[in-house]
Simulated assay, not measured.
Amino acid sequence: MSCAHQPACPEAWENDRQAARVVASHPEQGWSLLCNGVVIFADTGLALPDGRIVAPQGRDAHPCERAA
């Protein structure tokens, strides 16, 4: 996935992937879509663009409340 932000958002496979910008936020549903194609859930679990799932990591990693 190509990011147009400067500096570019981290790619989905990088350790800091959750630092990517929110492009769609749905806190009422408990998820947000990040610029790198990662879906982050309210419990901080992740769905990566290739279909892999990452277990919840802790509350500090959750950007669902951030404005798009």
Rank of each mutant, 00 (worst) to 15 (best):
S25D: 09
W13Y: 15
S32A: 15
D43W: 03
A12Q: 05
G37K: 00
L46H: 07
V23F: 02
A20R: 01
H26N: 14
E11T: 14
L46T: 04
D16M: 09
D50K: 01
G30V: 07
A20Y: 01
R52C: 07
E28L: 14
D16Y: 08
D50N: 09
R17A: 07
Q18T: 15
C35Y: 01
L48Y: 04
E11Q: 15
T44M: 07
A19W: 08
V22A: 04
Q29L: 15
V39S: 08
Q29K: 15
C35S: 03
A19S: 13
L33F: 04
P49M: 00
D16G: 11
L34C: 03
E28P: 12
A12K: 03
E28G: 15
A42S: 14
W13R: 15
L48M: 08
Q29P: 10
R52M: 06
R21C: 12
T44A: 12
V23Y: 01
A24C: 08
A24K: 10
A19E: 11
L33H: 05
D16I: 08
I40G: 03
A19G: 12
P10N: 01
V38A: 02
A24T: 09
L48E: 00
V38K: 00
W13Q: 14
R52S: 10
P10D: 00
G37N: 01
P49D: 00
E14T: 10
L34Q: 00
W13P: 10
G45Q: 12
S32H: 05
E14V: 05
D43T: 05
P10C: 04
R21W: 09
Q18S: 14
S32P: 07
A12F: 12
E14L: 07
Q29N: 12
W31P: 04
A42G: 14
E11P: 11
C35M: 02
E14M: 11
A42L: 11
P49V: 02
R52A: 11
A19C: 10
A19Q: 13
R17W: 03
Q18Y: 15
T44S: 15
V38P: 00
L48V: 02
R52V: 05
S25V: 08
Q18D: 12
V38R: 00
H26P: 08
A47V: 13
N36H: 03
Q29M: 14
